[in-house]
Design a protein around this nucleic acid. Sequence first.
RNA 1: AGGGGUAUAGCCAAACGGUAAGGCAACGGCCUCUGACGCCGUCAUCUCUUGGUUCGAAUCCAGGUACCCCUGCCA
Length: 558
Amino acid sequence: MNTELTAAASNNFLKTIIDEDLKSGKHSCIVTRFPPEPNGYLHIGHAKSICINFGLAREFGGRCHLRFDDTNPAKEEREYIESIKESVSWLGFDWGEHLYYASDNFEQLYQWAVFLIEQEKAYVEDLNAEQIRAHRGTLTEPGTNSPFRTRSVAENLDLFSRMRDGEFPDGTRVLRAKIDMASPNINLRDPVLYRILHTPHPHVGDAWKIYPMYDFAHGQTDAIEGITHSICTLEFESHKPLYEWFLDNLPVSVRPRQYEFARLNLTYTVMSKRKLQELVKLGIVSGWDDPRLPTLEGLKRRGFTAVSVRNFCEQIGVGRSDSWIDVSTLEECVRSDLNESAPRVMAVLRPIKMVIDNFPDDLIEESQAANHPQNPEMGCRTIHFGREIWIDSDDFMEMPSKGFHRLTVGGEVKLRFGYIIKCLRIIKDGQGKIVELHGEYDPASREGIHTADGRKVKGVIHWVSASNAVTAEVRLFDRLFNDPNPDRGGADYKQFLNPNSVETLTNCKLEASLAAADVETRYQFERLGYFRMDPKDSLTSKPVFNRIVTLRDAWNKK
RNA sequence: AGGGGUAUAGCCAAACGGUAAGGCAACGGCCUCUGACGCCGUCAUCUCUUGGUUCGAAUCCAGGUACCCCUGCCA
């Protein structure tokens, strides 16, 4: 069963705050929002935010809005809007009626900007970007006032309205708030409110020639939507005074509050949009949905389940300290979900042919194999056994190492759901490469792992009948990087790329039942891992399977 | 002497003045027709550090230290 974590999840500071706000009567209903900018695809870091925002709303009986923070048309595209909606839905969250766009508020925002001008709290700046920077001062030195800071209200109003009309080219003027050029918080040194951009917008078309900055849009949009708890990542903390300044100085009737949490960092991958984009552009990965990427589309294509991603987000918790979550935590979440839900099946990835010399060559035996060892309700399937079978080359060693208890020359092993077989000789080609194994089976050993004379066979291996095996391609994915933190400053993160992050095996042998494999079903290839048919590259004539994650392997570790 | 944050095990994380939850990882053992799953056990005399207050401190106070964020007409 795809059980959501039911154990009382750990407390976190956001729940504490909301709990108190509800108890004190400050709010009777909480409203949160997930506010992506449609300038790229969502990744697992966004999933954390989505789970927090939608999760909190769900837990406390409130609601969560999906809002596109679309204030910069230079970077935003419709394609991203659609992908983001799709990813949020896939994760299992529903915004219902509450789909919003910051851009739907552009007129109100404009009026508020006019209001600030009238209050002498905003002015049109003629300085160019470089000059503004020079006036801003540094971290340790105060900035200096712009010569345009004292423009009259009338002139500001006129200029701002002409900016809106598209009278001036990009970059020639901006609207700034009049706050404090000497503030130790640089965000308060007369921040830019509006810039001129003669760029069509993915949601509102070419209605605007000026666009509000994030700071001038976010808090106000929160207020308009009636957001009670505006939850964002830590880097916005220094913007909080600005967030409040606008709410204080504008005629808004409600007060959303901003709270910050630490963004997710995952080991052995990169999360920044820029780096993800670069990997795609350089062709290092096949696209945004490359199964090795931490993008939601990539994870989805690889076969991760939404419930496993949600469980992951629940398990890692929410805090305010910078953290690096070990990717093994994510892997464990998929395993535990798939262990319960995935039907078992047999597949041989690196086939060696094994001929059972004492089995009739015209006979194919049918038998039933359980689809799940602990859940009989998942039923059985028919498997076939014949004189020739495929076994995995990893399960045979000519010179076995200590502790190896699979097939060896002269040794015996149990075929999963089959007989005990013994290998008697190896056939090699001119180069000394093994081409075929020959041996015999014990007809009385169908049930259990004991031989006729009562000995217990140590090893059980998977296998596939050569008579009706399905040939397939299987892609074995590994971590994209060799270093736990490729993102660390200094060196180029690309130098840590794992050259073996994908291994493509083209001659894999799957049991016959997989000829009818379902693209939505995650299978456990017994003893190997969890796999899912690739929804893009799979062909009826040549199925392609992605390895989602391996099984834990106590033997391999030694 | 710029401002704002954060420090609890290998990685996350709870604890709200009453004697350090939980998960992941790791390590032993049991079980097993998947070296899987499951089960049992081990894993902080201690909360960045130094002092102080208190019968009692991870929690309160004072001083250090380390790391993160902020000088886009990005979000």
